[in-house]
Structures are given as structure tokens and as C-alpha cells.
Amino acid sequence: MEPTIECVDVVAVMGGFPVLAGASLRADAGEILLLQGPNGAGKTSLLRVVAGLLPVHRGEARVMGIDLVAEPRRARTHVGMLGHANGLYGDLTVTENVGFWGSTVGATAAEIEAAISRMGLAERLADVPARKLSAGQKRRTALACLIARRAGVWLLDEPHSGLDAVGRDELDAVLRQAAAAGATIVISSHELDRGTKLADRVLTVRGGMCL
């Protein structure tokens, strides 16, 4: 089976400095992969390469079989990346936020409703403006947006930051659920205990390489 994400000996340069020095990574559909390592090791850079944000200087990188060097924009349509911000419009409700991202890919109303339900937002929160949500609810809404725009690859940079214990547990539950539904999830996190419990596999990144 073809891997969802495949990076082979990727070298990437930012501001004249090498940030990845031959990193290789492979992830399959339905897998949760944790990237761990010290600050500056190259975890976020690796996520940015897979997201098509950081050009591949040397090596090969593919997402869903699409060459990131040759067709970065087409590859991006399959990828959703969330950092510390959620990318929500505060004046729009949960349904409108998810509906907006769904409408950009022609998602049906049923698909949008399903995305909201999968994140446990349908009952009380569907009509609540995003700015009135808690941090955990915002994060779940952002993930519902990824589902609505049919992103099969989720790249999450420190997804637990800013969440309380309940929010973190909720997030882990929805990530497991998403992976079970076929999403490939790559997480960069400093929280090793929580991350290793959540992930199917842990990859250590150090000095711009995956060990």
C-alpha cells in the first residue's frame, strides 16, 4: 500500500541555514505519528515541508502520491495544518465556519453536518459564534473544518498547548476517532507522556534528521 506521506532524505533550507539535513518519514492512512525532539531539532520544519510551505531543497517528498516539489499546491489540498491558532472566524458560528471550508471544496450539507457531529459539536454548540467557545471547543471546531475540506493528512504543531486537562482528553479522543476513520495524523509535541499514549508510532527528530 502506498504511504500517505513519504519523505526520503529531505534537505530543507530556511534563511540560508539548513533546517532539515536528510530527514526521512513515512506515515500510512489511519496512523497517528508523534514527532518528538528538542527545540530547534526540525520538527516544525518537517511539518512545514509536508504542508508544502517549506520547499524541498534536495530529496523526495510526496503526499497522497503527489510530488511536493512538482505540484505543491495540489498536494496542499489534501493537507490541513494547525499550529497555535485555530484559523476560525470569531463572528461566524461553528456551523458557518465549518460550512465555509466545506463550501470551498463543494462539500454537501450532509458532509458538513457529519463533520460537526464527528467532533461532538452538533448538539449545543453548532449555532454558537466561534469567539464564545472555550479553547478546547475552538480546537475541535478547527478539526471539523479540516474534515469538511476533506483533508486526509492532519499536521498538528503542539495541539495540546493552551488546553486544560479536559480539553486535552477531548482532543485525544477526537484524534483517535479521526485516525480510525482514515485520517493520517502527524503531531509535533513536547508532551511525551500524553503523546506516546496517543500515537501509534514515535519518531525522534534531532539535528534536522529523523532517528
Binding site: A51, G52, L53, R73, R74, A75, R76, T77, H78, V79, G80, M81, G83, H84, A85, N86, G87, L88, Y89, G90, D91, W101, T104, A130, C145, R149
Partner: peptide
Amino acid sequence: AIETEDGAFDLLRLSGL
């Protein structure tokens, strides 16, 4: 401002739209 308030503009750029 509505795009940059919570990083939505970055997502628009990343989304391949």
C-alpha cells in the same frame, strides 16, 4: 483583520485554494 485575527489567512494560503 478578520483573516489574521485567528490565523485564518495562513490556513487560506495553506489550503491550496
